[in-house]
Computed example of a mutant assay.
Amino acid sequence: MVEAFMLIQTEVGRAEVVAKQLAALPGVVSAEYVTGPYDVVVRIEADTMALLESTVVPSVQQVTGITRTLTCPIANGSPS
């Protein structure tokens, strides 16, 4: 399983609505609206990085009210 955080900026006043819409999408583990430079933080997952990039990320980005996203894959590798 591959997981990532998506940091999302929204149109003014749309953070709560966008977070609720994102929470219902397949591959979205959690969606929270926050304060700071980003408006919504979403945790997403898929079986592979390729699936995450080709299905989950685009479905998130197409939600109305989102102006910018930054995807941060979670690095859970064991120490070498």
Score class of each variant (00 low, 15 high):
34 V>I: 15
67 T>Q: 01
2 V>Y: 02
39 D>Y: 08
29 V>A: 04
30 S>A: 13
43 R>C: 11
78 S>T: 14
47 D>R: 13
47 D>I: 02
46 A>L: 13
68 R>A: 15
36 G>R: 13
28 V>D: 04
77 G>I: 11
38 Y>T: 07
66 I>W: 11
32 E>V: 01
61 Q>K: 10
44 I>Y: 06
48 T>Q: 11
41 V>H: 03
18 V>Y: 05
24 A>D: 02
20 K>Y: 04
51 L>E: 15
19 A>M: 09
45 E>C: 08
61 Q>T: 07
55 T>K: 13
1 M>P: 15
52 L>N: 08
28 V>N: 01
36 G>M: 07
75 A>I: 15
74 I>P: 03
59 S>W: 03
78 S>Q: 13
78 S>H: 13
80 S>G: 14
47 D>M: 05
1 M>G: 14
68 R>D: 15
78 S>W: 14
77 G>D: 12
32 E>T: 08
38 Y>G: 02
51 L>V: 12
19 A>P: 01
54 S>R: 15
64 T>N: 12
30 S>H: 10
61 Q>L: 00
37 P>I: 11
62 Q>C: 08
56 V>D: 05
34 V>F: 13
48 T>K: 11
54 S>L: 12
8 I>T: 09
50 A>F: 03
47 D>Q: 07
29 V>T: 01
45 E>N: 06
77 G>E: 10
28 V>M: 09
79 P>N: 09
71 T>A: 12
20 K>G: 09
77 G>M: 11
69 T>W: 06
42 V>T: 12
52 L>M: 13
55 T>C: 01
18 V>E: 03
63 V>C: 10
31 A>G: 01
62 Q>I: 05
47 D>Y: 03
46 A>Y: 01
33 Y>D: 09
31 A>N: 05
76 N>H: 09
69 T>Q: 08
25 L>N: 06
19 A>C: 02
71 T>C: 13
32 E>Q: 14
25 L>T: 03
75 A>M: 11
39 D>R: 07
70 L>N: 05
43 R>E: 11
18 V>S: 09
37 P>E: 11
72 C>F: 08
18 V>K: 07
65 G>T: 12
2 V>C: 07
26 P>L: 10
25 L>D: 03
1 M>T: 14
39 D>W: 10
71 T>Y: 12
7 L>Y: 09
40 V>R: 04
54 S>I: 08
56 V>R: 12
4 A>H: 01
36 G>Y: 11
66 I>V: 05
31 A>C: 06
68 R>T: 10
70 L>I: 11
47 D>V: 04
4 A>M: 02
23 A>N: 00
70 L>G: 02
4 A>E: 05
34 V>A: 03
53 E>F: 05
43 R>V: 10
7 L>Q: 10
7 L>S: 09
57 V>N: 07
75 A>E: 10
35 T>P: 02
3 E>P: 07
34 V>H: 08
7 L>W: 07
10 T>E: 00
50 A>E: 15
50 A>Q: 13
80 S>D: 08
48 T>R: 09
56 V>K: 00
76 N>V: 12
60 V>C: 05
36 G>S: 13
50 A>R: 15
